[in-house]
């Protein structure tokens, strides 16, 4: 389609390169590593032993993995041109509100749709492995999203631009310079449209990506609800979660 008047083709290519490079440099696992590990699946016995763990132990493990992954998303954000020029308040707001959504997009790289397993702590795990968490609905929602995202078969460029567009959301509450964020998001969005167009993808693909946003938001809300409930039942364990996890998802 037509480019916005303040966005030349050269701009678009520069933005695309920057965002894709930032994404590839800050992925915890490369596509090759994940491919190698794809068939490294937890055995039924191993799955059973996870299921028999305490809720506290399992929540602690997941909080640790999410915290580790968040640091990579922070690094991704820092490398997106323009992000560090935003005021500190807005950088924090965008990361607090968007880092889990970006993680959910990235997670589909670690999802194997042929056996409905997700890479977790060294091997690929089925949803049942997470039974001890006591939030099957959240776990199933995450697997469902990963399944539907993986069906879109996003390439690295599309995933990078989609992640950046989701992160640079101007409608996050308490933003002080939302217009600046909107400008950044618009450019990334145009770059994404351009990338899809150049790859011969039809407009439906972008619509399908955008249609996942409500699902992602509801998973993020469900996660906070489950965490609040867990914190009521196991306050000491919740307090021992990594400080960054508490900072990002604390009320």
């Amino acid at each position: 389609g037509s480019l916005p008047d303040n966005c030349s083709l050269h701009d678009i290519e520069r933005i695309t390169q920057n965002v894709v490079k930032s994404h590839l440099e800050t992925c915890q696992y490369s596509s090759e590593e994940l491919k190698k590990l794809t068939w490294n699946v937890y055995t039924p016995e191993e799955t059973r032993s996870f299921q028999l763990k305490s809720a506290e132990w399992m929540w602690q493990q997941c909080a640790l993995h999410i915290t580790n992954a968040i640091q990579y998303v922070v690094e991704f954000a820092k490398r997106i041109s323009g992000f560090m020029e935003l005021c500190q308040n807005d950088q924090i707001i965008l990361l607090k509100a968007g880092c889990l959504e970006v993680l959910l997009i990235r997670m589909c790289r670690a999802y194997n749709s042929s056996n409905n397993t997700m890479f977790f702590d060294g091997k690929f795990a089925s949803p049942q492995l997470f039974k001890a968490l006591g939030c099957d609905d959240l776990v199933n929602a995450v697997f469902e999203l990963a399944k539907s995202l993986s069906r879109l078969q996003l390439n690295d460029e599309e995933m990078a631009l989609f992640s950046a567009a989701v992160l640079l959301a101007p409608d996050r509450p308490w933003l002080t310079e939302s217009q600046q964020v909107q400008k950044l998001q618009e450019k990334v969005y145009v770059a994404l449209q351009h990338s899809l167009h150049m790859n011969g993808a039809n407009t439906e693909k972008l619509d399908k990506m955008v249609s996942k946003l409500p699902q992602m938001k509801s998973i993020c809300n469900l996660h906070v609800d489950k965490l609040e409930f867990f914190r009521l039942v196991h306050p000491e364990t919740a307090y021992s979660f990594p400080p960054l996890y508490r900072e990002v998802f604390g009320s």
Binding site: T26, E75, K96, L244
Partner: peptide, 20 residues
């Protein structure tokens, strides 16, 4: 700032899990 001191620190420091 106090409430988000770790995020602030991550945003400020140049070393990152990726470099480590």
């Amino acid at each position: 700032k106090e409430k988000h001191k770790i995020l602030h620190r991550l945003l400020q420091n140049s070393s990152s899990p990726v470099d480590l």
